[in-house]
Design a protein around this nucleic acid. Structure first.
Length: 787
RNA sequence: GGUCCUGUAGUCCAAUGGCUAAGACGGCUCGUUUACACCGAGCAGACCGAGGUUCGAUUCCUCGCAGGACCACCA
């Protein structure tokens, strides 16, 4: 071992290769140990870069997997990729400049699949393997695989059979850019400044003008009613009367609804089909007409007359101009508004009436809340977020998407009689576009469904996909409900929610026993990190600079439930720690050359003390790992290693191990046991350096081919030796005196200590003399004399 | 607007209804000693504010302030 610089990269590469070749993380289905299955989040393998927040979340539960393995569990830890759905389509469209409109579904799907495979390969190598993640790569799954498609389609058929999945013509949330229906969960708020336009309507059979404020004048041709609050003194007189819609000159009725805010605008609201979700609500409640003016691409149709073919924005401008020239635009006010927008492209969503498939959620709110409470949440308060979302749901889950790259909806519709035709489960997976069907009822030609499922339709069955529900029912039964779902808080409303929903509807039980919400990383100033804000810090850069173990050391310090600001300083500390660990090990190992790995007949008192302390740390750390308190485990082990083991114990036994003689074997046994225990406890967090040290020495005695296959130590103790604490206290007092006298720590002294202390330390005087370099220890008033 | 989380030295973070409130980074002083100067010994430095419960609150409760997150929103 060279002095000074250590080539951490070389160490990493060597062991990464070793683990992969030996397949040391392979799952053993025949093992008798208790299974611990992890419902891994399959990432969208899109960009090559990974910001520290993502790297942290994946590494955080990877540490859990390692710790569980070392606590005797048979860990089922499959990697996965979520490669179907909009993100991939968007990626392909942008990268290759292909639009789904200008190609066929099968062609487009082929390109998507090829791109997915390429990116996933890079991702596995550059992210997971690089970070030292201990997946069993033989269990790799992807959500576009035939197996996953079969799961999604089977689930669909079963839910249809149960009546929990239905097809209906309904207003749905629509993204005009992606030209598809969206689920409520895919909508994000977009804050923007817009104009509130005050428009004069004529009151029918009167000369009076009624002013209505609207942000969406382009929807005038779709106006189906006007509302006022029944308690609004100044406007209630209008109820039952009719207004004439400007430009389009047709009559609409004025009706009453308590939800109208008399203070906003003029207190008079027009309802169009559809401008926003309130319009949908009122349309349903008051059974209004349907006037469709929007096309699927966000342009206006013939109903808009002269404005047909224009985009929403353009039509708005033109209509406002025409209203103004007719003297009907009273005024405009600036309005801070937040509108629902597509979470992937930011385009404000519209509401269109289309035929879609839905899964019932509104009927099951209470049951879902109950299921949520059967699961143990870490941290517990994250369950509240889940509950808030469930309580606030306003729509059933729209699962059909008018896109290409996803799991096809296995259904046909008879052109003649409208019958919905479904395949049998044995035929799955299938693409109805590639299979001809005749109507079993009337014999008519059946039209295939051209849509695909929402990506969450597949992802919400990751327990079924990952544990091979259909391929290996035995295995699935053994591993489910899964032990753990690790995920981030921003997808509680999607991934966690949909998974719990599906598990409830299909199997009438929870999908996993515990859910851990990973730490949320902020930038150094305490702000949320994202690519769009430009404050993202890339994990690759840090790993390049500090090494993987130092990065993981930072991850290991994050506690659940509290946001963590990223500080590069922590990586510096990590590197220092690795160096210290390596150096202390080097020292210990070099003094174990003649060690026979046998427990000596007699242990020195201070060694008993050390072994006792070490065993306590092992127990406490295990306890903390079990309840996902990685940071706590790391803290106590690190503190013990640095201050008790290095600063105190190594100094105490130095002279004993330098020379052959009494107490040498006792020291060697203690050093061996403690260092190995410490290495093991740190192995889940810093797997590379611990493997390196283990392989340099311990492997030949332990006979287990990797430290990561060993179990955390259980140390045999011979009493707690409480006098050891007193020993350390005296050591500390003397060191203080030496510092005060500006003497070196190894300067020779004569020590006088209180008689009571002297008596208690009687059996440890030799070690005390050694560590203090005291030529004599006398009884009396505490005094340190220098030579 | 609703809900949730977090406020501890310059910075990150821990514990605690009562004892000297721990550790790391940074600062300062001292020490080059055969694992390590990416080190050791030591020093200085902190409980967001106001009430309340209590013999006693940094800890529990209420309100406020600050930061962060989630959800709902208005034509």
């Amino acid at each position: 071992m060279d002095k000074g610089k250590v080539d951490f990269k070389e160490i990493e590469n060597r062991w990464r290769k070793f683990w992969e070749e030996k397949k040391i993380y392979k799952f053993d289905p025949k093992s008798k140990k208790e299974a611990y299955s992890i419902d891994t989040p399959p990432p969208y393998a899109s960009a090559g870069h990974l910001h520290v927040g993502h790297a942290l979340s994946y590494t955080q539960f990877e540490i859990v997997a390692r710790a569980r393995r070392m606590m005797g569990f048979n860990v089922y830890f499959p990697p996965g990729f979520d490669d179907n759905g909009l993100p991939t389509e968007k990626f392909v469209e942008e990268k290759l400049g292909i639009s789904k409109d200008k190609t066929t579904r099968s062609e487009f799907r082929k390109i998507c699949l090829e791109e997915s495979r390429k990116v996933e390969k890079v991702y596995s190598e550059n992210v997971f393997k690089k970070l030292g993640h201990s997946y069993d790569w033989d269990l790799l799954y992807t959500t576009i695989s035939p197996e996953a498609q079969k799961v999604a389609q089977t689930v669909f058929l079963r839910l249809v059979k149960k009546g929990e999945c239905y097809r209906k013509e309904e207003p749905v949330i629509w993204c005009p850019y992606h030209k598809t229906a969206l689920a409520q969960a895919e909508v994000e708020d977009l804050k923007r400044t817009t104009k509130l336009n005050y428009i004069k309507f004529d009151l029918a059979n009167s000369n009076e003008k009624i002013v209505i404020a609207t942000t969406r004048p382009e929807l005038l041709p779709a106006c189906v009613g006007v509302f006022v609050n029944p308690n609004d003194e100044s406007n209630r007189r209008l109820i039952g009367k009719e207004l004439i819609v400007p430009i389009f000159n047709y009559k609409v009725k004025v009706m009453a609804d308590e939800k109208v805010d008399p203070e906003f605008g003029t207190g008079v609201v027009m309802v169009c089909t559809f401008g926003d979700s309130t319009d949908v609500e009122w349309w349903r409640k008051h059974k209004l007409d349907l006037k469709v003016v929007l096309n699927k691409d966000g342009t206006l149709n013939e109903l808009a007359g002269a404005y047909a073919g224009l985009s929403v924005e353009e039509a708005r401008k033109r209509i406002l101009k025409d209203l103004d020239s007719q003297g009907r635009l009273e005024k405009q006010e600036v309005l801070e508004q937040s509108v629902g927008s597509c979470e992937r492209c930011g385009t404000p969503v519209e509401y269109l009436v289309t035929k879609q498939w839905f899964i019932r959620t509104l009927d099951h709110k209470e049951e879902i809340l109950k299921r949520g409470r059967e699961i143990k949440w870490y941290p517990d308060f994250m369950r509240v977020r889940f509950e808030n979302w469930v309580k606030g749901l306003g729509w059933d889950w729209t699962i059909s998407r008018q896109r290409y790259y996803g799991v096809p909806i296995p259904a046909w519709y008879c052109e003649k009689c409208g019958e919905v035709i479904l395949p049998s489960e044995e035929e799955l997976p299938l693409d109805p576009l590639e299979v001809e069907r005749k109507c079993p009822k009337c014999g008519g030609q059946a039209e295939p469904d051209r849509d695909v499922f929402d990506t969450w339709m597949t992802s919400s069955n990751t327990p079924e996909v990952a544990c091979k529900w259909l391929e290996n029912p035995e295995l699935y039964k053994k591993l489910t409900p899964m032990s753990l779902r690790p995920q981030s808080h921003d997808i509680i409303r999607t991934w966690a929610f949909y998974t719990i929903l599906k598990s409830h509807l299909l199997f009438n039980r929870i999908p996993w026993k515990e859910i851990v919400i990973n730490t949320f990383v902020l930038d150094s100033k305490g702000k949320g990190m994202s690519k769009s804000k430009g404050n993202a810090i890339w994990a690759d850069d840090l790993i390049e600079k500090y090494g993987v173990d130092a990065f993981r050391y930072w991850v290991g310090g994050a506690s659940l439930g509290t946001d963590l600001p990223f500080k590069e300083q922590e990586l510096v500390a990590g590197k220092k720690f690795l160096n210290k660990l390596l150096n202390a090990s080097k020292f210990v190992i070099s003094n174990l050359k003649d060690y026979n790995c046998k427990k000596p007949g007699k242990l020195e008192e201070i060694d008993k003390w050390m072994l006792f302390k070490m065993s306590e740390i092992c127990k406490e750390a295990k306890k903390r790992f079990l309840c996902y308190d990685i940071a706590g485990a790391k803290r106590i082990v690190e503190n013990f290693f640095w201050h008790i083991f290095c600063d105190n114990y190594l100094e105490i036994v130095k002279k004993r191990i330098y020379n052959d003689g009494e107490g040498k074997e006792s020291a060697q046994y203690t050093l061996y046991t403690c260092l190995l225990s410490i290495l093991k406890l740190f192995a889940p967090i810093t797997p590379f350096i611990t493997e390196e040290i283990y392989q340099r020495y311990f492997v030949k005695f332990e006979k287990v081919e990797s430290i990561h296959l060993t179990q955390f130590s259980e140390i045999e103790v011979e009493g707690s030796c409480p006098e050891g604490d007193l020993f350390i206290e005296v050591l500390s007092r003397v060191r203080k005196e030496k510092t005060k006298a500006k003497k070196a720590m190894n300067s020779e002294i004569t020590l006088t200590i209180e008689e009571s202390i002297y008596e208690k330390l009687k059996n440890m005087l030799r070690d005390l003399k050694n560590v203090l370099n005291a030529s004599k220890i006398k009884k009396g008033k505490f005094k340190v004399e220098f030579k």
